[in-house]
Every structure is written in structure tokens, then in C-alpha cells.
């Protein structure tokens, strides 16, 4: 599949979805001016991935080397949250198609709220996340 790569801006996150390199990352701040226009191509890419799952892809992602989705959000607004949930639902569906998948949820060591948001989404989507602490300063600007 052609990788999906979107550069980070001040209001939109960096997106990398690259099957060949097992590189799946969402990073930064999400409060797009047009949330639908930003997230629909990402949703469509994941739907295409789901439709194109074959034994070659299954063999690539073993239990020792799963497909790892890294969620490294500093902040996302409430409308982005709805699309992030949609992304997680699709990732869960990929997992249910016999693909080994792991979700890594990163949060700042001083930002327990971001961890709680991850735990909440994990519960809603019924998929256990790994939680990874980022050591940073207390500044956020």
C-alpha cells in the first residue's frame, strides 16, 4: 500500500501510516479548522488496509513484530476525539482480521489527564493499550 504521510502543523498532527516499514504514528496537536477534511483520508486509508489484508501482510506482523500504532498526542479537541475513536475502531478491526497489532499510547509524565483519555478510549474500543511515559518539562508552549 502507498504510505500515508501528512506533515505536522500547529493545529494538525503528523500522520505516518507505512506498512512496508511498520511505521504508524500520530503525533502532535489536533484541532483542525475542518476536522472532516483532515481525518477522512486517514479513515479511508485504514479502510483500504482492512480490505487488502492478505496472508503476506499477516505473515509480516508476527507476535514478536506486531503492527505498532504510536499515538503521541500533545492535545486533541473534542471533534478530533470522535475521529480518533473511529481510527481506533478500525485498528481493532484490522486486529480482528488476524493481524498482530499493538497500540502504544504516549503521555507526558506530568499529564495524567492524557493517560486517562487513553484508558477511556481503550475501554470504549475494547482494546488494551500499552502506556509509555514521555519525560518532558512542565512547559507546553
Amino acid at each position: 500500500m502507498i504510505p500515508l504521510i501528512i506533515k505536522e502543523t500547529i493545529a494538525t498532527p503528523k500522520i505516518v501510516f507505512d506498512v512496508a516499514n511498520n511505521d504508524f504514528e500520530l503525533k502532535g496537536c489536533s484541532r483542525p479548522e475542518d476536522v472532516r477534511n483532515f481525518y477522512i483520508p486517514i479513515i479511508d486509508w485504514l479502510k483500504e488496509l482492512k480490505e487488502n489484508i492478505d496472508n503476506k501482510i499477516r505473515a509480516k506482523f508476527t507476535p514478536e513484530n506486531p503492527m505498532v500504532f504510536k499515538f503521541k498526542f500533545d492535545y486533541f479537541n473534542s471533534s478530533s476525539a470522535k475521529f480518533i475513536l473511529d481510527i481506533l475502531v478500525l485498528i481493532n478491526e484490522v486486529h480482528n482480521s488476524d493481524i498482530n497489532v499493538r497500540i502504544d499510547w504516549y503521555y507526558d509524565e506530568n499529564d495524567d489527564d492524557m493517560k486517562e483519555v487513553g484508558e477511556e478510549l481503550s475501554e470504549v474500543v475494547d482494546f488494551a493499550f500499552e502506556y509509555i511515559i514521555l519525560k518532558r518539562s512542565s512547559a507546553f508552549s
Binding site: 492535545y75 506530568n110 499529564d111 495524567d112 489527564d113 492524557m114 507546553f140
Partner: peptide, 14 residues
């Protein structure tokens, strides 16, 4: 605390 700054930021955004 960072968590307070981010809560204020979230409220401002929304």
C-alpha cells in the same frame, strides 16, 4: 502544574 495549564487550554479551545 502542566495538567492545569492543559485543562485551561482545553477549555479555551472548546
Amino acid at each position: 502544574e502542566l495538567v492545569i495549564k492543559k485543562r485551561v487550554y482545553t477549555i479555551l479551545v472548546e
